[in-house]
Simulated assay, not measured.
Amino acid sequence: MEHYKFFQNRECEYFPCHKTDNPEDFNCLFCYCPLYCLGDKCGGNFKYTESGVKSCVDCLRPHIRENYSEITGQLGDVMKLIEKNKSDNL
């Protein structure tokens, strides 16, 4: 069944927080994308604003029900980045 891979909060005042043709399949589990910190290596549909801020307003990757394994599969890259940042700050 794997129900842990999908969560939806229709009571959220921002639901859905991205434009979608399939709100019934909109996954809120990764409300804040755990891959944001990977910058241009996140694999999502992002762009940088004129001021250089990464904007994910057009990205649905973490909100697609079937992408759970893809997202969690990249968490090792996030952990490597965390370790690198820790060692850089010593």
Score class of each variant (00 low, 15 high):
H3L: 15
H3I: 15
Y4I: 06
F6P: 07
F6E: 15
F6V: 11
F7W: 08
N9A: 07
R10Y: 13
E11A: 15
E11Y: 04
C12K: 14
Y14S: 14
P16C: 13
P16A: 09
H18F: 10
K19G: 05
T20Q: 15
T20F: 09
T20C: 15
N22Y: 13
N22D: 09
P23E: 09
F26I: 12
F26N: 14
N27Q: 14
F30P: 09
F30R: 08
F30S: 11
Y32W: 09
C33Q: 06
L35G: 01
Y36N: 08
C37M: 08
C37E: 11
C37T: 08
L38Y: 14
G39H: 10
G39W: 05
G39M: 10
D40R: 14
D40E: 14
K41Y: 15
C42G: 10
G43N: 01
G44V: 03
G44P: 04
N45A: 12
N45K: 12
N45G: 04
T49D: 05
E50L: 10
S51T: 06
S51M: 14
G52L: 13
G52Y: 09
S55H: 03
D58A: 04
L60W: 05
P62G: 14
I64T: 08
I64F: 03
N67G: 05
N67V: 12
I71W: 01
T72E: 06
T72H: 03
G73L: 04
G76E: 13
G76R: 13
D77G: 00
L81P: 00
L81K: 07
I82P: 03
I82E: 03
E83M: 03
K84F: 07
K84H: 01
N85Y: 03
N85C: 00
N85G: 02
K86T: 11
D88L: 04
